[in-house]
Simulated scan of single mutants.
Amino acid sequence: MGTCTGVGFSSNRNPSAAGQEAARKALEQAKVTTPDFVLVFATVGYDQHQLIASIREATGGALLCGCSGEGIITHGTCIESNFGVCVMTIASDEIRFHSAHIKEIEGRAEAAGEELAVTLKPLTAPDTRACLLFADGLVFNFDPFLSSFERTMGRQEPLPVFGGLAADNWALHATYQYHNDEVFTGGMVAVLMSGSASIAWGVNHGCVPVGSKRTITRCAGNVIQEIDGRPALEALQEYLDPDWMTQWNKSSLNLCLGFKTPEHMRQGYEEYVIRYMPGKNDGAGEVIIQSEVTPGTELWIMRRDKELITAGLGAISRELRMQPESVPKFVLHFECVGRGKMVFRESEKSALLSSLQREFPDDVPWIGFYTYGEIGPIAHHNCFHNFTAVVAAVY
């Protein structure tokens, strides 16, 4: 049989109809009736429980994982609205999938990493190729999670981790994670992929510095308290929109922080790793990022550059081609919400997606979503990203 994969999408506003339509299209492309694994990304206008129930019914109760996103991505289609769902179905005698989920991860990223690893470790095998991870983008802290997860897994070479943080159309209210029949918030879902698959991937952000080097002088975990001896918000104020106090989502979308890429990750990657600031504390003048920092860390104020983003997607496309004639079994695409409709017109988004996908036949199953944070390895070290595209092709 090999690997039979299909992707379908729907923008129908009825959750049951949308789930059924997307699943049916995926099964038709895969030419199967009963898949082994189902991957789902959807936006939050739907009744999430009805949506997932309809997909479970259409796919015969196969293993299902996924999360909500600010938008969905398939071949030739990127939908950023309250109503969009995409489904990938896979039937394979070459690739095996095992899954786990952890709930209530807020404030306990280290413990969650250990719990997830304890569950997944017995399911790994010598041919386990990667872990897919989808976590709540409003509460997830990557660094303590990863440290605990990799330590507990105890592998000589870390297992590559790909994925994205669940999103909710900029409401910053609740994101959703999916595991079989369950729909929940504040948690994470992981999928082990094992078998005779090979993975090629690319990571690119396309951001440039707009100011001189700054230094974090006081911080606590993922909270930046002072920059250059001043409250962080005060130090950033000259770069923020005039209405930043009342419209932080808009201001933080137009401003990001760059940290020097660690030496062990610099081969073949850009000079900076990018961080988004999803939260702030007005009274204390603090800003919050999604990974941890230490006093003395240098940073740069960054902005997106459309030309660099376009060139970066072209570079990703070339990195995905393992051999000139090779065709992936499927492609996974995790794109930052900060590279979507808030920056690009629909025609520009479509052109960017086309520039990335044109190296591959139109029938390559391609699925992804717009995230609150992207996960993908740099130089074989797992890394968290913002304002970035992470694309992985499975052969």
Rank of each mutant, 00 (worst) to 15 (best):
E94K: 05
S10C: 08
K213T: 04
F142Q: 04
Q357P: 03
D363E: 04
L138D: 13
V394W: 12
P328D: 14
A17V: 09
A166K: 01
E286T: 12
G285H: 04
A112R: 05
T185C: 11
V364N: 00
N386Q: 00
Q20D: 14
Q357C: 12
H75E: 12
G113V: 05
V32Q: 09
K31D: 15
R96N: 02
P262F: 06
T5I: 09
K121F: 00
Q323V: 09
T246S: 11
V208T: 15
S354H: 12
V273P: 04
S251N: 03
V331Q: 10
V327H: 06
E270S: 09
Y272I: 11
R108W: 03
R303I: 12
I301T: 02
S99Y: 00
F9A: 08
G71W: 08
L192D: 08
E263V: 14
G163D: 13
P231D: 14
G6E: 02
G84I: 00
A112C: 07
C219A: 14
M302F: 02
D305S: 10
P328A: 10
E21K: 12
V273I: 14
S347E: 15
L64P: 00
R24Y: 07
P126W: 00
G6T: 06
R321T: 02
D228L: 04
E292W: 06
V32E: 11
M88Q: 10
P242K: 07
A18I: 08
Q177M: 01
W300H: 11
G202R: 00
P262K: 13
C383V: 13
Y372A: 08
A58C: 05
G283T: 05
R56V: 03
T297P: 01
V87Y: 02
N254G: 15
A174C: 09
A117K: 03
G195Y: 02
A174T: 15
E307N: 13
G202L: 01
R358D: 15
G8C: 07
P365D: 04
E114Y: 05
D305E: 10
N222M: 15
Q237T: 11
A58N: 06
A109N: 13
W248S: 13
I289Q: 10
N12E: 10
C219Y: 07
P15N: 03
I72A: 11
Q290A: 15
V327Q: 05
P209N: 11
C86I: 04
A17W: 03
M188R: 09
G61T: 04
L133T: 06
P126F: 00
L63N: 07
A167D: 13
L308V: 12
R24D: 10
L39H: 12
V223F: 08
D363F: 01
F145R: 06
V364K: 05
S251V: 00
G186H: 06
T59Q: 07
S354A: 09
I288P: 10
G283I: 01
G186K: 01
V390C: 07
A392N: 09
N382Q: 01
T124E: 00
I375V: 13
M265H: 08
G229Q: 06
I274Q: 08
S194C: 04
I90K: 05
K121I: 00
F184P: 03
K31L: 12
G221M: 12
A166M: 08
E270F: 06
R56K: 09
Y395S: 08
G195C: 06
V223P: 06
R218M: 14
R24V: 08
V40R: 07
N180F: 00
D363Y: 06
G314K: 10
S355H: 04
A130R: 03
V7I: 03
A125Y: 00
R304P: 07
A235D: 06
E359Q: 09
